[in-house]
Amino acid sequence: MHSIRRIFSVGTAAFVLGAGLLAGSSGAAQAAASDCTGGANGFTDIPDSLSGRGVAGAGALVISDPHAVASWAMQSGTVGGRQMGWGVLSTGGAGDWGPRVRASVWMYVTNDNKATTILCGPFEVQSAGTRITTPAYPTSSSASRAFQVCAVLSSPGEIAGATCSPWW
């Protein structure tokens, strides 16, 4: 079982890094949640229950074997008196979320018009009826700062491919 977890973890990290390249990242991608938690790299931890205004897109992910559903969105709102953006992932209460079903959300931030990006996440959930957020990052009136939220849902037999919002 441990080797299956290791393979899945390595596969998820490779998938996220690959998604970063597809998203237009030319800088070095960071693939650890610790790179944006606890105040790292200008991010602010927020409660998973925090809701904001939907911006730049949202979507649903579905796998059939076993049946599982997750939805994701990019949101913005006031955190600690500052306007910030973050990603959110919610797993549907229905379906068969066996022990090997996983859903992940992550966020890219660029401060230099997508020349480089900061990868925040992935953050993973493994059960139905769960909601998780990425840490929040300050918004800016500068056109060089942009955000993108991505999510994936998978089981050993199926992957609902990574889906990303447009840059906002």
Rank of each mutant, 00 (worst) to 15 (best):
58 A>M: 07
144 S>M: 11
12 T>M: 15
151 A>H: 07
3 S>D: 14
96 D>Q: 11
59 G>D: 09
164 C>K: 05
64 S>R: 06
86 W>I: 04
47 P>K: 12
62 V>L: 14
99 P>V: 08
19 A>L: 11
61 L>M: 09
72 W>E: 01
67 H>L: 11
12 T>P: 00
88 V>P: 00
128 A>Y: 03
156 P>Q: 10
68 A>C: 11
116 T>P: 00
55 V>Y: 02
69 V>Q: 07
77 G>E: 10
78 T>Q: 10
78 T>F: 03
111 N>L: 01
78 T>D: 04
148 Q>N: 12
166 P>K: 13
13 A>E: 12
28 A>E: 08
110 T>N: 01
77 G>S: 07
98 G>D: 14
11 G>P: 02
113 N>C: 02
79 V>R: 00
121 G>M: 05
5 R>K: 13
54 G>C: 02
115 A>G: 06
64 S>A: 13
62 V>M: 12
63 I>E: 13
18 G>R: 08
156 P>V: 09
19 A>Y: 05
160 A>W: 02
113 N>A: 15
30 Q>D: 06
7 I>Y: 06
75 Q>H: 11
127 S>V: 06
31 A>D: 05
149 V>W: 07
33 A>I: 08
42 G>P: 00
107 M>Y: 01
28 A>V: 15
45 D>S: 09
146 A>N: 13
113 N>D: 14
95 G>V: 07
42 G>I: 09
142 S>G: 13
96 D>P: 00
147 F>Y: 14
139 T>I: 05
50 L>I: 15
